[in-house]
């Protein structure tokens, strides 16, 4: 899925965070968004992920404009087309790893569950042994791998990653980047990742660097 950001503006109270931001992210690319803290990269990511709405401007998925007013359609889009990997994992602590991975199917057509994809993701992220464990006993790296599995299990067209390596040590972070890159390459999915590190630039097909808006 290609994504087009067209003149998007966003302010919080008096602070302008995004001002006429434009970008195009082509289908099946691993796209990096970089910038210093507070530059608005997470805000942009939230808008692309339909978690937040812009003050003005348009967002296009495969050249179709997104209507931010219809909450139920946005929810449908988030569930069916977008996968999220957050820096803080956002797993449900009292649910098991398996239950966390299956959470998206609470809102999706059960036929969309692909058992072979499930098996492959379990293998790629090496979490088979963790399936029965409660997620709050996992390490940071394990949590992030579970979060990634949950994001990808619905086979989303677009994967939004908000600094997924931020809480990981360098080995785990690199491993995560490799896995995402592999997923992007073989599954032909678009991945947009926000990061403030230059360490992983080589993984990205394209990078957008934010100029801080004053």
């Amino acid at each position: 899925m290609n994504v087009k950001v067209d003149n998007i503006c966003k302010s919080f109270k008096d602070k302008v965070v995004l001002k006429n931001t434009n970008m195009f992210i082509s289908n099946a690319s691993f796209f990096g968004i970089k910038g210093s803290s507070g530059c608005g990269k997470s805000t942009l990511l939230n808008i692309i992920g339909l978690l937040d709405k812009p003050d003005s401007g348009n967002l296009y998925f495969d050249d179709i404009a997104i209507n931010f007013k219809c909450q139920s359609k946005l929810a449908f889009f988030r569930g069916n087309k977008i996968g999220f990997i957050f820096q803080s994992y956002n797993l449900m602590p009292k649910l098991t790893v398996y239950e966390n991975i299956m959470l998206p199917f609470m809102y999706l057509d059960k036929n969309k569950f692909n058992s072979s994809l499930f098996d492959r993701l379990i293998e790629i992220f090496d979490i088979k042994e963790l399936l029965g464990k409660q997620s709050d006993v996992l390490s940071g790296g394990e949590k992030q791998r579970v979060a990634a599995t949950r994001a990808l299990i619905t086979s989303p067209e677009l994967v939004i990653c908000d600094e997924p390596t931020g809480n990981l040590d360098s080995n785990n972070a690199k491993y995560m980047m490799e896995l995402l890159k592999e997923f992007c390459k073989f599954e032909k999915k678009t991945i947009i990742m926000v990061t403030h590190s230059n360490e992983y630039d080589s993984f990205f097909d394209d990078i957008y660097v934010f100029d801080e808006v004053k």
Partner: peptide, 16 residues
């Protein structure tokens, strides 16, 4: 609230 946020992010509508 995080639980609500996660569920919304995973496609849950307000109705869900």
């Amino acid at each position: 609230l995080p639980e609500i946020g996660i569920k919304k992010a995973l496609g849950g509508s307000n109705g869900d």
